[in-house]
């Protein structure tokens, strides 16, 4: 009897200490993330907001000016709106062809009779591991305004040389090409994973019902890939809104046609040292990303469920 109760309490104590142990270890094990995020994530977030209400320069002289930074950004800064327009234009030029090409490549890679699959996969994915800087530099040479390779190829078919770094069209196309080249393979591999997850039975049933390949693509493949398509659209939206290295290295051009939102933020902060104004740009950028991601999410859902 006595030993029985004794054992019970030991058992209970054990269970109890096991529980506190898990508490202690749990909080301890996740603490590195929360400490670092607190210092380099939460604090900066709040502090950016604080700075954005001030006129703030490199020497640390600060003056509270309320919403003035935001107001002048919105109402009195054509350069900011230009950077917004450029960012969206480059985003659209790069994302739409990129995702269509990726879908096509994935569709082909998924064909049973295709040989040398691993070779194709490897080479198509290779651009993605290249650094943005390297991509920007090599494409800046390929899109050289005088003797670039693209202009040479165009001259062969009788097209006049295009001033890539001097025109809106040229700069946007060149930068969009850099983005596309780096990301088509990545998206293709993601789509391929989605395609491989679709059960063969669905296609067989559709074939028996007399649906052709195109109908199958439209009414089986696309709807089944919906979550993955949404994922890639959201990802490329976030990435596209943060475009920075490509225009910095390619050159923003004399008409600021390559000035993107993040590049503008960088210049305001680290070339002109107007931290307050740059902080306001950062928050505007954040809002634009959120709103635009939500719009894209909504549109993608609509399109792929239509």
């Amino acid at each position: 009897m006595q030993s029985e109760t004794g054992r019970l309490t030991i058992k209970q104590r054990k269970r109890f200490s096991q529980k506190t142990n898990e508490y202690k270890s749990g909080y301890l094990f996740i603490s590195p993330f929360f400490i670092l995020f607190g210092v380099f994530g939460v604090f900066p977030l709040v502090f950016t907001l604080y700075i954005s209400f001030h006129q703030w320069d490199i020497l640390g002289t600060t003056e509270f000016i309320g919403m003035t930074n935001y107001l002048s950004l919105i109402t009195n800064d054509p350069l900011f709106w230009k950077s917004v327009g450029n960012t969206f234009s480059i985003w659209a030029l790069s994302t739409i062809p990129q995702l269509i090409a990726a879908l096509l490549i994935a569709f082909f890679l998924n064909q049973a009779f295709l040989k040398y699959k691993s070779f194709f996969r490897l080479s198509i994915f290779m651009p993605n591991v290249t650094s943005v800087v390297a991509v920007a530099l090599v494409f800046s040479v390929i899109f050289g305004s005088q003797y670039g390779l693209v202009n040479y190829v165009l001259s062969l078919i009788g097209v006049e040389a295009i001033n890539w770094s001097g025109s809106y069209f040229g700069t946007h196309v060149a930068i969009a090409t850099m983005v596309m080249w780096r990301w088509i393979g990545y998206n293709a591999i993601i789509y391929l994973a989605g395609l491989q997850g679709i059960s063969k039975d669905l296609y067989e049933a559709a074939t028996i019902d007399g649906a052709n390949k195109l109908q199958q693509l439209w009414s089986i493949t696309i709807p089944m890939l919906r979550p993955i398509i949404i994922f890639t659209v959201v990802q490329s939206t976030i990435g596209g809104m943060q475009l920075f290295a490509e225009p910095l290295l390619f050159g923003q051009g004399s008409q600021y046609q390559g000035l993107t939102m993040t590049l503008y933020l960088y210049q305001e902060a680290f070339n002109r040292f107007s931290f307050g104004y740059a902080a306001a740009i950062a928050w505007m950028l954040f809002f634009i990303i959120i709103i635009f991601s939500l719009i894209n999410l909504f549109l993608t859902r609509k399109i792929s469920s239509a």
Binding site: V39, G41, P44, L45, T48, W283, F286, I290
Partner: peptide
């Protein structure tokens, strides 16, 4: 926290 773009914390982190 993955939703927060790194640009947002760029300036304070530089100050830190």
């Amino acid at each position: 926290t993955m939703m927060i773009p790194p640009q947002l914390s760029l300036i304070p982190n530089f100050m830190i």
